[in-house]
Write a protein that binds this DNA or RNA. Structure first.
Length: 477
RNA sequence: CGAGGAGUAGCGCAGUUUGGUAGCGCGCUUGGUUCGGGACCAAGAGGUCGUGGGUUCAAAUCCCGUCUCCUCGACCA
């Protein structure tokens, strides 16, 4: 156990020093490294593989919903940004601008996209002419740049990867419906693929996207009780359609503006799943996105037949569609155990001469840290498949339990403060005015995350007037 | 952008107070013994001390400038 303590000391304590724990884990497990330019990160193969798995799962859902992929340019004319008043005001402070190219000053500065509503609005304006062109639903996987003051890998970096979906509909009802549908799609994805419970709902005027009519968010509770916005969908009404001339001739012959909406999730999801499932030993990756689902650790690997047996098992698992590797490096078994646990691999199989002789294998679960030695080697595919499924269930249910235990109600600012201090999401009544929302921020350093589905409070937690909404307040990343 | 902290081998650090041959641990390379919870022995490689200027016979060390990173706040996916 002394050696175990030595290992644990490599990463900060998850309970007392959560931010440092996070940074330690993402760097030491080789998910990311810092880039040479302020606020940039390199997503290393182990981290990028998680992103690829996220992409694959989401992309197939988008396509099943009828969305097509496309790619729009990185550079946007500065003049586009200023066409939608709220939009430019919201994003101006954080855009990076290209002023020189080809050795000369540019006639018009070019903005590096912080999001693509403007350029996509411009293109949609060219492509939409008739009601027959609608709905138009496209998505792109790309990078965007927002010059943030401070940064943290996956959670906040100047450049990050995401998908942004943009759609135009003939009516506001359809666009609003799509906005809610995509929110549901994200929620289902978070639950089944990331094994992560989330709160979804509409955002306040203060928290909504610059230029939107309504913004909806998906919020996940992190290990320390803080909230992380993990996805958003926006209903734009006709704001962007009018700014960019997205018009069509309707069935009745009248020229009308379309209604647009957009939605996005980013590499921040990787940060979210790390902070949701991780423990003192490091990462705990949900099986659907884990780059390695099973690591096979040979014991006494130089002994006759051990490596052959491990590789044969790996091939069998791969044929069954399971992402398996054999760690045949020269490190000791104990070293490998700790290393792969830190890297969050859901399952480990230990295979040594004794096991091969008895036809059994030792199976270790990362989520429960429990070893089972009763499984037959011959049934490995079934055992692994079923256990991976059980790990998914366990990860979700224990995260959901923790979240539910940490949602409290407050009837006063003092109660609200006590709630967020204790690492909770706090449900409270709100009159709907900006002043009261600001007061909560000032008093408790907490922000309105999303509206609850229904209002269960009589009075506003701040001013005591009639409550128009029930809001989830939390401290947020 | 405000407040703190830090830049010395791939990583983590000591050395700076009091200027005088560049150090330690881990990792890496080669060979050998090991292997069921971070093994051991032996031999080796690896440095413009973030960067620019100044003081000095002499600077990692003192002085001035500058850049970057981390943590905490205000802004945000």
């Amino acid at each position: 156990m002394a050696k175990d303590n030595q290992f644990v000391s490599q990463i900060a304590d998850i309970e007392t020093d959560f931010p440092q724990w996070y940074t330690d884990v993402v760097v030491k497990t080789k998910l990311v490294d810092y880039g040479p330019v302020k606020g940039t990160m390199v997503i290393r193969p182990y981290g990028y593989a998680i992103w690829e798995n996220i992409q694959r799962e989401l992309d197939s859902r988008f396509k099943a919903a009828g969305v097509e992929n496309a790619y729009f340019p990185l550079l946007i004319p500065m003049s586009f940004m200023t066409k939608e008043a709220e939009h430019v005001e919201g994003f101006a402070p954080e855009v990076a601008v290209v002023t020189h190219a080809g050795g000369a000053k540019l006639e018009e500065p070019l903005v590096i996209r912080p999001t693509s509503e403007t350029i996509i609005g411009h293109m949609f304006g060219k492509w939409v002419e008739s009601w027959r062109d609608l709905p138009l639903r496209q998505n792109q996987w790309c990078n965007v740049m927002r010059w943030e003051k401070t940064t943290r890998p996956f959670l906040r970096t100047s450049e990050f990867l995401w998908q942004e979906g943009h759609s135009v509909f003939a009516s506001g009802e359809e666009a609003e419906k799509e906005t809610l549908n995509m929110l549901s799609l994200y929620e289902e994805f978070a639950k089944t693929v990331l094994c992560m419970p989330v709160l979804t709902g509409q955002k306040t005027e203060k928290e909504k996207f610059a230029g939107a009519v309504a913004t909806y968010g998906m919020e996940a509770m992190m290990h320390d009780g803080k909230s992380l916005q993990s996805g958003t969908t926006h209903y734009m009404g006709q704001n962007f359609a009018k700014a960019f001339g997205v018009q069509f001739t309707d069935k009745d012959g009248a020229l009308k503006y379309g209604y647009t909406m957009s939605y996005g999730v980013s590499t921040r999801l990787i940060g979210a799943l790390i902070m949701t499932h991780g423990d003192q030993r490091g990462l705990v990756l949900p099986p659907p996105v884990a780059p390695v689902q099973v690591v096979i650790v040979p014991i006494a690997q130089k002994k006759e037949g051990v490596l052959q047996a491990c590789n044969a098992l790996k091939e069998r698992l791969r044929k069954a569609g399971i992402r398996a590797v054999v760690d045949d490096s020269d490190n000791s078994p104990g070293w490998k155990f700790n290393e792969w646990e830190m890297k969050g691999v859901p399952l480990r199989i230990e295979l040594g001469p004794r096991d091969i002789e008895s036809g059994k294998m030792i199976v270790f679960r990362r989520d429960t840290l429990e070893k089972e030695d009763c499984h037959l080697l011959a049934e490995a595919e079934t055992v692994v498949g079923e256990t991976l499924g059980r790990i998914c269930e366990n990860l979700y249910t224990r995260a959901e339990k923790r979240m539910n235990e940490r949602i409290v109600r407050a009837n006063s600012l003092e109660e609200l403060l006590r709630g967020v201090d204790g690492g909770n999401f706090v449900r409270a009544g709100w009159c709907g005015c900006r002043a009261c929302e600001d007061k909560v921020k000032e008093f408790a350093q907490a922000t309105a995350r999303v509206f609850d589905r229904e209002n269960t409070f009589e009075t506003c937690v701040v001013c005591g007037k009639k409550a128009e909404h029930t809001v989830f307040f939390a401290r947020a990343y």
